[in-house]
Structure formats: C-alpha cells, structure tokens
Design a protein around this nucleic acid. Sequence first.
DNA 1: GCAGATTGTAGCCGAAACGGCACCAAGAGG
DNA 2: CCTCTTGGTGCCGTTTCGGCTACAATCTGC
Lengths: 300, 300
Amino acid sequence: MRHLRFLRYLDEVARCRSIRGAAQRLNVTPSALNRRIMDIEAELDAKLLERRARGVQLTAAGEVFVRYIREQLSDAERMREQLEDLRGLKRGTVKIACSQAVAHDFLPRQIGLFRARYPLVGFEVAVADHERAIALLASYEVDLVLVFRAPFIGRLRPLMTVPQRLVALLPAGHPLLERPKLRLADCTGFPLALPERTTGGRQMIEEFIARSGLRLSVAAESNSFELLRGLVAQCGMISFQIQIGALPPAMPAGIVVRALDERDLNAADLVLGQLRDRNLPLAGAQFAEHLATGLKTLGG
Amino acid sequence: MRHLRFLRYLDEVARCRSIRGAAQRLNVTPSALNRRIMDIEAELDAKLLERRARGVQLTAAGEVFVRYIREQLSDAERMREQLEDLRGLKRGTVKIACSQAVAHDFLPRQIGLFRARYPLVGFEVAVADHERAIALLASYEVDLVLVFRAPFIGRLRPLMTVPQRLVALLPAGHPLLERPKLRLADCTGFPLALPERTTGGRQMIEEFIARSGLRLSVAAESNSFELLRGLVAQCGMISFQIQIGALPPAMPAGIVVRALDERDLNAADLVLGQLRDRNLPLAGAQFAEHLATGLKTLGG
DNA sequence: GCAGATTGTAGCCGAAACGGCACCAAGAGG
DNA sequence: CCTCTTGGTGCCGTTTCGGCTACAATCTGC
C-alpha cells in the first residue's frame, strides 16, 4: 500500500530507536526519512520523537501514533486478504509466537492440518518464552500467541485456555516405571534434566520445591526441550514436560511418558491469545479458530 | 492526514456514485481523481468500480475497500483525539443520528450536560427516521444512533435499550382529562393529530388499530412533532408521543400529558447503538456512556 | 434516429513532493 | 583534546500529482 509508506518509516524508527538505523533497513537516506517524520510532526503539531545524541526516543504522543500506525498496517493487510478471499483464493500469512512445548509436535501438526484445507496460507512461527511472545504480540509482529503460563497483561485477550499438568519423561526400562503413578518425591535419587528457569514448567517445579523442601538432584539444565529429550533417551535421565509437549505418539522410541500425581503439582494454563482491540487478519482469525478446536479435542 | 487523501477520493466517489460529482466536491479535476483510482486498482490488481455511462458502481471488491477506507478515516480521527487528549484538551466531534422524539428536549439537554464538562467537544446531530439513521451509521457518517424501534440489522450493535410507552398529548381543559387514565378507544370521537406513517409511534398505533378494528378520526398528519404539538395547543387536537418525547417539564403551557392504558399498546424500545466492529472516537464513546446513564436515570 | 448533454478517459505541461548527496552541529567516549 | 556517531539542513535531479484540453461512449428528449 503506497499511502502507508510514511507510516512504515516511523514504525521502523520506533523499532530501531534510531533514524539512521531505520534508514538503512528501509534503503533510504537518513535525511529523507527524517524529513518525512518532521512533516508528520508538523501536521499533527506534536513532537513524536525526543532527539538525543545516541538516537531517538518516542514521546508519549509518539507511542500513541506508533500504536495507530501498527493498527493501520495490520488493517491494510486484513483488507488485502479480504480481497483475495472474494477472488476465491484463501491466502495470507499467519504470524504466531509459541512456547517451546508446542513447537515439537502439536503446533506443526495443527499447521499441517490447516494447510491441507488452505494450502495458500503461509506461516511465520516464532518460538519464544512468555515475555518475548507477549512483546512480539504487543508490537504487532505476531497475530497470535500460544504460550504456557502467560503473564497477566491487560492488552492480552485470551481466546482459549487449556489446563496443563506436568508429566515425567523416563527412559524405557527405568525402575520407576514399575509404579503406576509417579510422585515427584520418587525422583529424588535419580539424575534429572530440567528445563531452564524461564520456562513455565520449571517454575511449577520450583514452586513445588519451595513448598515441600524437597531436594532434587539436577544433573542437567537446558533451554532446549529437544536436548532434554536427548538426555532422557541417551543418558537415562528423567525430565519433565507439560502434557501437550509430551503426547505419546510424538515421543521417540526409548522414552516413556508417565503422569505425575495430582497432589504434587497444580495444573497451569496453556493460553491461546491475541491482542485486545485488534481485528485479526482473516487467515489469523481462521487459524485461531482451528487451533481452538484442536486444543478442545486434545482435552476430550 | 495527508496520506489518506486517496482514500478520501474513493470514499467520495462511492458516496456520489460518480467521478465527476466527487471531483467537484473535492475541488479536483475528474481526470486527476480517476487517475488516483486507477492507481489503486492497479496496485490491488482488482477493479473497484464498474464504469457505466451514467456514473460508476462499486464492485464487490470496491465495497470491501470502501469499508476499509471508512475504518481508516475513523481510526485516524480517533488517533488525533487521543493526541489532543494527552495534551490536556478533551476535544473532538460527536456525530449522532436520532429520532425526532428526542430532538426536542432529551438530546439537547444531554448535550448541554455533556458540554458543561467537555466544552471543547463539538456535535453534529442528524434527525432522521430509523432507516436513514441506520444508513448514516453504516456509511460512517455518524458514530451513534439513538432511535425508536430500530430495525434489526446485523451491523447495528445496541449499547442500551429503553422500553418506551406511548402517551397522549391533550390541550389543557380537554374533557378527557377528567379521567385518570386514558384508553385509545376514548379518543375515537375527537380530532387526532398523528405522526407520519414512517415513525415508530405511528406504527404502534396502526398495529393497535389493525388488532382492534377501531376507527380513529385523523384530523391531521405530519412528519414534524413540533407541528403536532402546535395542533394540540392551538387547535385542540389530541396527539401522541413516546414518553421520552413528552417529558412534562418540556411541554409548553397548554399541553397536558396523559399515560395510555397498558392494555392498549405494548412498549417498544428506544435504542442507543453503534456500528459493530468499529472503535468509536474518544468523544463519541464518552458521550455514549453519558447518554446511557442519562437514559438509565430516566427510567428510574 | 438524430442532436445535445453527460460521463469516464488519455495527452500534455507546470507545480509540488520526494529522495540523494554533501555538509554542519551537538554530544559521547576515550 | 580528538574522534566517532547521531540528528539536521541546503541544494538539486527525479518522480509524482493535478489542471487543462480534447475525445469516445452512452443516455435523454424530441
């Protein structure tokens, strides 16, 4: 959309917090960029940027305007999709940020199912922790988030929440597998491979430790669930994951999933959400609906 | 907003259903206007207008695009108001369409109360029948409607509904005033001044007539409630109005208001509404809230 | 069926907007 | 102190835009 050029300019400046930096990314000269911004400031009769020696900073008015810009850009995209839609094509791009737990199996499968019906729809998936996911949502870089233990933010509108329990991942043949149900206390003697402290699952474990005073032997710790699974299968460690991240069919041979006793850990919510006060692009809205049914059948 | 110029162009063309007509209203030449439109069509790769000999007609894609345009223009206005807002000024313009029944007393008083708190807020009020009011809302020419017996339209989002009964307006000293409550059948012998058939109040009366087979002597009929009141005060006729249009303090001397028996006429709704899927400008949203409380205290 | 009016459209030209380049001024950091 | 980075300005060529004029197609009234 031609008429949105200036808006893109300011959007990029806001992201880079620098006129020269934005100019480089936009393939224009800083002077030209700066002039357009000054035009807008003159028209609105309000300073949008606080010019500092090391770059620029958005003023309060700038914040308001940048939010407006991102709405506009999003709306333009949505309109385009509507046009494509009534031309018979279902296309567009779904941008989503998700927790690592769903990155291995659940989300890719849902994308596959969705694309079977709408093959022209593209996807951009950012795997990130809760905070970064919410930040991406707030800056309009993604349309949807699917995260575990989302922080309570006013601008997040939950579309669906699914309670999730923690399950244990054990190597095949592990002695603990003889018991039908596992308690966390049973694991004290065994080497554990835990997810990083920023993840929701780890925080649940930490809360339990704080409550019970249990001492666990943490043999390994990683930000990669992929690696943790490897530690289980190849080093005989025990790891933990939320249910959706450890659906039995997706587990490699050599790893067995066991539920943890309900007394040990409360469930926490996996939440599918979008930005409040925002109209999603067609493709995004449809995929959100698709995901919602996918999540629902998961529970049933 | 400079970057929205093209959009205004097409918006006006859509309203005029003519390129030349729109060009005249926009103070540009038809050729220039047409070029911009063709630019947009080329960029979207979709014909927006069906060129005919007597003017132009929006295509389906055109409809989608024009709706997008009006959203954009509305959003731009809202953003401006937000900027003014954080500059300390509460300004903006509230655009509202209303039924005649509230034009005489209720709405002006509410506007007065509102402007006492926000003196910089301007008003544009269009008095119109239901259909036209809804049309104005749908084409983004007004932000709010306050109409009696609004038609059920999907795009209308009711914010508040207030049931309204019909009351009779009689000249002071009229013989019927001796009775505490009036029945419609009592009026058969007297000359009546009825509102036009397009108004909601008249339709209620017509429905009663159809049900009861009553014969009323219609001495006068008008589209102006102002005139009807004159006929009551100066010609001794009886007229009818919904409650909110006949609040006793607003009645001129010489006119007395009497409730009609509940058995005769059901209540119908006065509805305050906005367009679904639209974010109102700040001033509009605030006035809607103000009106809602005004309507609530009315009932209590 | 034919003149007249009305509508959208293309060519040409001047004006305005825009971007690139070179240069300047102001802080930050050593 | 100098140097490096940042935003800001003057000048000039390019692109975009709008007004004028003329033209083809269609509707209207007789």
